[in-house]
Design a protein around this nucleic acid. Structure first.
Length: 497
RNA sequence: GCCGCCAUAGCUCAGUUGGUUAGAGCACCAGAUUGUGGAUCUGGGGGUCCCCCGUUCGAGCCGGGGUGGCGGUACCA
């Protein structure tokens, strides 16, 4: 190693794009969030399960048609036996594999939760990373849409327990069957129209970002964005376009009215009728929660595997980022019914529904609104024992040990600097207090304990350094054998304050 | 992926039509105070001006190509 060398560094320290380091504040805050979510899910009767980061790629279901290699967007590599492996990109596909593999031994419905990192090899953006954390709950083997309604209730409860007030979030519910019905009604049913259906659904999904006019362009001829890039549209005619736009606008003032409207205007096909009826059952089940669970026919969600009800957890308050620009957070979680996923591994259909919280994204949102669950995680550091006489290092260490034996976080200053720098170090570490013993104190068998929190408060009213130095604010001298007791008292003072 | 903008100290940025030794504020370190975190004053350390190639007597500045960042858009299971 080139320790002490003055050769120019040839190795550039650089985080791969789309990945993030996390410091003690964020780690502690996320741990708290996870604990709250876990408690809520367990309260609802879900049990823990864990699956690995890596699965066989075909188990995740993402091979490109006509090609023998995994889709873009997935981190993949080949095993010794030439089989493709991939980092998981969500927690649902691995759960489906787990349930299918352990089907006979699991109770049905099987209600489980799990949290962990997932990976997507995509272009990162603000709040979008290539590694991020999700926290999922799923009911497998529950055919009734009551299971979907329960997911919505639990999602709402979880957000509230995380400190998001009622009114600051909404759980929006829709049903893919209603959308499928609209597709059929405008003549886009059947296998020939898969491509155009996708284009239409994608356009609909952009309502909150592009607005009605943007969506109208994407449904029709296409749209040119601010940078001049052109996106081809779905090529619908005016009648088709207005039908699609009308369902995006079908949310009414109450869930009952919305559902009625769907039944009246969008249930002309059997599938559309079925979807509307399912939403009616859900709306009925959550009728006591209308202020937080809302039937909204504009919710689309991902395109791949949802087969029935879909839901989305949305933050409704406005936020500004560090530079004062407004940030739209939108969805911090979502889910829905995926009756076909487990069936891929087994001959029989296995109905399932689930909900996923985007923990990393929710953390970013809570941080911007200065939520107590985040800011409350500000850490106080360890008690720092200063080293004034190198020869007495064993004596200082014995003080540290005494504190640790009393279950007080403590450390010996291990740097090479003088006393002033050691005080600065303790300050920067957010130490609650510093333990000081020079030759004078040692001769008397005492230690000085400086309360750094109280001291900082006192400093505000002292202007001259002479005065500051003479006052030695918030500092007490105690016999060495009362060290632990005195430190404990200072800690107690700040815990309650 | 496509389009646009940007890159100078740890951070935020200034830097003349291309001209000597590239600056400021903040932060950091030290001293004033042989033993006390703040404030003040004084001093100090920090830069391959993102990288490579080119034009030029001479490039932080001009040209080309990379890389990285930001924004939009596409995709997002």
């Amino acid at each position: 190693m080139n320790v002490g060398s003055n050769k120019p560094a040839s190795l550039k320290p650089q985080l791969p794009r789309g990945f993030a380091d996390r410091g003690p504040g964020e780690i502690a805050a996320v741990e708290r969030m996870l604990a709250v979510i876990r408690e809520t899910y367990e309260l609802y009767g879900f049990e823990a399960v864990e699956t690995p980061f890596i699965e066989y790629t075909d188990a995740l279901g993402k091979f490109l048609p006509d090609q023998d290699r995994p889709n873009e967007g997935v981190f993949s590599f080949r095993d010794d036996d030439e089989q493709w492996l991939s980092l998981r990109y969500d927690l649902t596909a691995p759960l489906a594999r787990y349930v299918a593999e352990n089907f006979d031994r699991l109770p049905k419905p099987y209600r489980s939760y799990r949290a962990g990192f997932v990976f997507r090899n995509e272009k990162p953006g603000p709040g979008r990373f290539r590694q991020f954390m999700q926290f999922d709950a799923d009911s497998v083997g529950a055919p009734s849409v009551i299971a979907d309604a329960e997911m919505c209730m639990m999602a709402a409860d979880t957000l509230e327990r995380l400190g998001i007030k009622r009114g600051d979030y909404l759980i929006k519910v829709n049903n893919r069957k209603v959308l499928d019905g609209v597709m059929e009604a405008i003549g886009l049913g059947g296998p020939d129209n898969v491509g155009r259906r996708l284009t239409v659904l994608r356009a609909m999904d952009k309502l909150d970002r592009l607005g009605v006019d943007g969506v109208r362009l994407l449904l029709g001829p296409g749209r040119k964005d601010e940078s001049g890039d052109f996106t081809k549209g779905a090529g619908l005619d005016n009648a088709q376009t207005s039908k699609v736009l009308s369902i995006l606008n079908a949310r009414d003032e109450s869930n009952a009215k919305t559902v009625q409207r769907l039944a009246n205007e969008f249930a002309s096909t059997p599938i559309g009728y079925e979807g509307a009826e399912e939403l009616r059952i859900i709306a009925d089940f959550v009728s006591a929660d209308e202020d937080r669970i809302v039937v909204d026919p504009s919710v689309v969600r991902g395109l791949e595997y949802y087969t029935g009800p879909v839901f989305e957890a949305e933050l409704t308050f406005g936020v500004k980022d560090e530079s004062g620009r407004p940030v739209r957070f939108g969805s911090v979680g979502g889910g829905g019914r995926y009756d076909g996923l487990v069936a891929r591994f087994r001959g029989e259909p296995v109905p399932a529904t689930g909900f996923s919280i985007g923990v990393s994204r929710l953390y970013a949102a809570l941080k911007l609104i200065d939520s107590p669950i985040i800011s409350g995680a500000d850490l106080t550091g360890p008690v720092v024992v200063l080293v004034l006489d190198r020869d007495e290092i064993a004596r200082y260490q014995s003080m540290v040990t005494a504190l640790r034996n009393a279950n007080i976080r403590a450390e010996l200053y291990l740097g090479g600097a003088g006393m002033k720098a050691q005080m600065r170090y303790a300050d920067k570490r957010a130490a609650p207090c510093a333990v000081i013993q020079g030759s004078d104190e040692r001769a008397r068998g005492e230690v000085q304990i400086k309360d750094l929190v109280e001291g900082a408060r006192a400093a505000a009213s002292i202007a001259s350094n002479e005065e500051w130095k003479a006052a030695r604010p918030a500092q007490v001298s105690v016999p060495e054998d009362r060290l632990v007791e005195a430190v404990r008292e200072i800690l107690g003072r700040h815990r309650s304050g």
